[in-house]
Design a protein around this nucleic acid. Structure first.
Lengths: 108, 108
DNA sequence: CCATTTTGTGGCTATTTTGCCAAAAAGTCA
DNA sequence: TGACTTTTTGGCAAAATAGCCACAAAATGG
């Protein structure tokens, strides 16, 4: 029971971990607006395409995205929902922290 | 502009990264129900207390939690909102993946 | 069939993260 | 003050991650 709970949390942590890299979150953010091929995502993040491919496999293994081959290209789409709302919250947290840093600087 | 966007995404990725460790997500999950002292959280995850302390500093640096000393103990509380909703979504994703694995096993 | 395009893998090094122990801070209580 | 409690920090070794290059796989077009 408690062991199941820990396993469940570990599975969720894996999803957060997959999202916890700038290039991967950038790709996921763009995928919110619709599917993209690897080449598009490679142009977006600017890394070597093999690096992008490995990042995408991390996201796929975590279940965050799914892929489908059509013609010569592989298309990735988002499978994780609730991101709009949550990213708004993390964004608010970031805004808030920036503001508090500004206040700290002013208080000097 | 595009550079600011990348910085913003990187700041958000830092939050996901902080949540992307089983022990840290476990503590955060419990903190949803109210503040806890370090000793409580240490008992929860079972690691050395110095390890727990470092995990907490990662969460604090990312802005996910805040801390306050009262008496002899340090109390941590959650500062990031929207977690209930998002964890429900990641949970649904995990359920769905488990089910699809069961189907794959049965299909053999 | 062969050349080309697109994506994934293997292998490697550099960097980062993790988690423990020991010790330092910072309070608290007698 | 001095012993004790709670938490943090420094330092270290093991493990994991990131990102590049070279090459393999798979599909397409001529």
């Amino acid at each position: 029971m408690d062991d199941d709970y820990k396993r469940y949390i570990a599975a969720q942590a894996r999803i957060f971990k997959a999202l916890g890299h700038p290039s991967r979150l950038l790709m996921v953010d763009v995928l919110r607006r619709g599917e993209k091929c690897v080449c598009d995502l490679q142009a977006l993040v600017g890394d070597d395409i093999s690096t992008v491919s490995k990042h995408l496999s991390v996201l796929r293994d975590a279940g965050v995205v799914s892929s489908e081959k059509r013609g010569t290209s592989m298309y990735y789409r988002l499978t994780l929902g609730c991101l709009d709302n949550f990213l708004a919250c993390t964004g608010a947290l970031i805004e808030q922290r920036v503001l508090s840093q500004v206040r700290m600087i002013k208080a000097k």
